[in-house]
Design a protein around this nucleic acid. Structure first.
Lengths: 211, 211
DNA sequence: TAGATTGTTAATCGATTAACAATC
DNA sequence: TAGATTGTTAATCGATTAACAATC
């Protein structure tokens, strides 16, 4: 769904009013059938003979994704990546507000990033008592991630955006975890490069087998 | 496969010598059948009655992923995210070397990040002539990404690690693209939070339906 | 009304799981 | 040899695609 939302947002910017599943399928490189199936899972947003109203569909998908409500995010680990996320303007446009930054490095204490001060991790509980936190983004080294995740769950946080290179072991807990494993992504890229290289070799040889 | 590689690496660090598909399945939260199926796609790495040799399997998967050869990466866009990637030590351990940094901001010209100087984007062609580039990481604003991607392809780059919030339109070209769409990821998290919340509500009501 | 395009059902495909014979 | 565990085939499941009747 996020991908639909992104494309519809672009169409909206371009001033497109209506779009058919077929037109959208061409833009997004998926089948029209797929689009109709996906959208229909959530409700009948289209109209026979007309297609989908871009504005309306955009808003509906936003609602489905929970974007109409504001989310408060804290970032734990104000290294390069943490700062990158904190400085990222587009999250705010989608209703994701960075309201807290935490680190264990005393040198960063009080340092401001986009108007938000860096606090020491030891102040986390105190902060949590006074502020509603919806999501915690973890951008610190992996060996501290798991323990910290538990600590966060105990504080009542219900969602973790995990950039540390571990799969947090919170499976049975009532927390939502979204992983961004950059090195996995890079390895995947490397793998696809190899495969693509082999494909090309075969093509050049004129070989028609697929193995 | 990257996920297997990661887990095997951890096992290796822990000094584990052999592991059965069943043990691994418990650790990774997948079925043993899945593991055997996956691994067998690439070759018979196990041994009946024994399981898999961790060291051997780790190396084999590394080979499958193309990690035994070094990859040179350039980063285009030396903002927060670009710098975060450049400073990331663990990529190098996997054979991914950051060999070039490019930006259009003259204030950054010559600025060093982890021993690599920032160059002006206009010097890209010159640089490419003298250096082998395997992968280009794009961390600049989305409206410049697409044009730049084409420019890179013309320079012979065969892989793009795309952090810009667009799907590059290079489909038919002979390039491998790996996307990291952070805002999509965040929206997905938001969606899962909503679903999880609703699930909980139902549980509390004692409702047994699944709709 | 005729044309367009959805919503929805049925068919196809691929991926996951289960089962078990092969074999270390 | 007996026990363990893979490799591999067959069964199940879910997701994608195709088809078409419903309807704007």
């Amino acid at each position: 769904m996020p991908r639909y939302y992104r494309y519809l947002g672009e169409l909206l910017d371009e001033g497109v009013e209506r779009i058919s599943s077929n037109e959208l399928s061409l833009k997004m490189n998926v089948t029209a059938s797929q689009i109709r199936q996906d959208l229909n899972n959530f409700g009948g947003f289209g109209q026979q003979g007309y297609g989908y109203n871009v504005q309306y569909l955009y808003e509906e998908i936003g609602r489905i994704l929970g974007l109409e409500q504001q989310h408060n995010i804290i970032i734990i680990g104000v290294g390069n990546l943490g700062q990158a996320l904190a400085n990222y303007g587009s999250f705010e446009k989608m209703g994701f507000m960075i309201t807290g930054l935490f680190d264990i490095n005393p040198a960063l204490d009080g340092h401001m990033v986009r108007g938000v001060p860096v606090r020491m991790l030891s102040e986390l509980e105190e902060f949590a008592a006074g502020h509603k936190i919806d999501i915690a983004a973890l951008t610190m080294p992996k060996h501290t991630a798991d323990k910290l995740a538990r600590r966060l769950v105990n504080l009542g946080i219900r969602a973790i955006w995990n950039f540390a290179h571990v799969d947090l072991e919170l499976m049975d807990q009532d927390v939502v975890v979204e992983n961004v494993h950059l090195s996995d992504s890079l390895m995947q890229l490397s793998y696809n490069m190899l495969r693509n290289g082999k494909k090309k070799e075969r093509q050049e040889k004129g070989d028609t087998e697929n193995r």
